[in-house]
């Protein structure tokens, strides 16, 4: 089940070698939640402020499906 994961700012440091152009192209063996996926990637849930699933605001409980594009964002407040 191929999916794409995009990471923002500090969350990128959680995945060594992360490429911001391609994101992470993963092939999941089974269905899992957005939160479970974050855990598997080593993304601290406490640092994830916004989740976008296929361009829409989402939460940890939502199920990741075939072909999904998931973005994880931390709190960004700089100006």
């Amino acid at each position: 089940m191929p999916i794409t994961v995009m990471l923002s700012t500090t969350l990128r440091t959680c995945v060594p070698g992360y490429n911001p152009v391609t994101g992470l192209c993963l092939d999941l063996p089974e269905s899992l939640t957005v939160g479970d996926l974050a855990d598997r990637l080593g993304l601290p849930r406490g640092e994830i402020k916004i989740i976008m699933l296929n361009g829409r605001h989402a939460g940890f409980a939502q199920i990741v499906r075939d072909g999904d594009r998931i973005g994880y964002f931390p709190a960004v407040g700089g100006g």
């Binding site: 402020k49 989402a58 939460g59 700089g78």
Partner: peptide, 22 residues
Amino acid sequence: GANDAEGTNRDNREQISLTAEA
């Protein structure tokens, strides 16, 4: 945001106060 989707972490907000720009 994401944390409230599971009803957690409102009390832990101070722990993630070190925002990305910092």
